[in-house]
């Protein structure tokens, strides 16, 4: 605890005046709570802000530790589960069927009207189609399957829908993104719109895109979901973390996915 304390102070000091720092942008009115939704210009992948050694680790198909989760996901994809002893592959076939799937999540499930992220969709499929025991959020099998499915969309641009039934979720996610939270009283936007590219200790602040998730994070010594990363951010600004699977996470994820629109999926990413 003592070791991280100065880092926390650093965050407070660096970002105390973040609110008054408005980055020049192609779009007017970048930061205010009531501003129209805008995106960083130019859009840059999360990996761009990682140190060169971490970028190299992500880029090399073997050196990337996240590929261990992809490999496990490939095995689980073919493993029969549930009362019907059916595997994912029994319905969906091989990897090709999942190409592009990750670019469209989170999305609204037409049957239930619920907003689902990729993990949520896998869990729903597992309970409703396979009738198998549910996987826990952030469990290793769920991370592995998600990593495998996301990996099939590597290089494809994000393109979520924010129209129709998705719109209210999107608007709430957008508001949440601008909302100051925690003891440090910071919003997502203050770091990831107004101060991306700047240094925070040894860290370079990213634009906050989720295109690499699930990522392998050195700090975690393992793979983790975008929801876990959002929880990390919340704990970083000393705010209460949202529970896994909560509306807050899903709505924020939808806003982030729209904000990353056009950026290529780079899962499994590697982060510091």
């Amino acid at each position: 605890m003592r070791a991280v304390l100065p880092c926390a102070w650093l965050l407070a000091v660096v970002l105390a005046c973040a609110g008054c720092t408005v980055r020049e942008s192609a779009d007017p009115g970048t930061t205010g709570v009531h501003a129209a939704p805008v995106r960083p210009v130019p859009l840059q992948q999360g990996s761009v802000f990682a140190p060169p050694s971490v970028q190299a680790m992500q880029a090399d198909e073997f050196e990337n530790p996240g590929m261990l989760w992809v490999a496990r996901g490939a095995k689980l994809w073919r493993q029969p589960e549930g009362s019907g002893a059916r595997s994912c592959a029994d319905c969906h076939g091989d990897a090709g069927s999942m190409r592009g799937a990750a670019t469209r999540y989170p999305q609204v499930d037409p049957a239930s009207g619920q907003l689902l992220d990729l993990e949520g969709r896998i869990m729903q499929c597992r309970s409703e189609r396979q009738q198998a025991a549910p996987l826990a959020w952030e469990s290793e099998p769920l991370l592995a399957l998600t990593a495998w499915v996301a990996f099939q969309s590597r290089g494809l641009p994000m393109q979520v829908s924010i129209d129709g039934p998705a719109r209210p979720f999107f608007e709430r996610g957008r508001e949440r993104y601008q909302q100051r939270v925690g003891q440090m009283n910071l919003s997502c936007s203050q770091c990831h719109d107004a101060n991306w590219g700047r240094q925070l200790g040894a860290e370079t602040i990213s634009q906050g895109h989720g295109t690499g998730y699930p990522v392998y994070r050195l700090e975690w010594q393992g793979a983790g979901s975008l929801q876990r990363r959002l929880r990390s951010c919340l704990s970083g600004v000393r705010a209460e973390m949202f529970p896994y699977g909560s509306q807050e996470h899903l709505e924020l994820s939808l806003y982030l996915a729209w904000r990353a629109g056009g950026l290529a999926i780079e899962a499994p990413g590697v982060r510091r």
Partner: peptide, 9 residues
């Protein structure tokens, strides 16, 4: 020879 093993260590 390169090997990577999924293990929490």
């Amino acid at each position: 020879v390169r090997i990577a093993i999924q293990h929490v260590m």
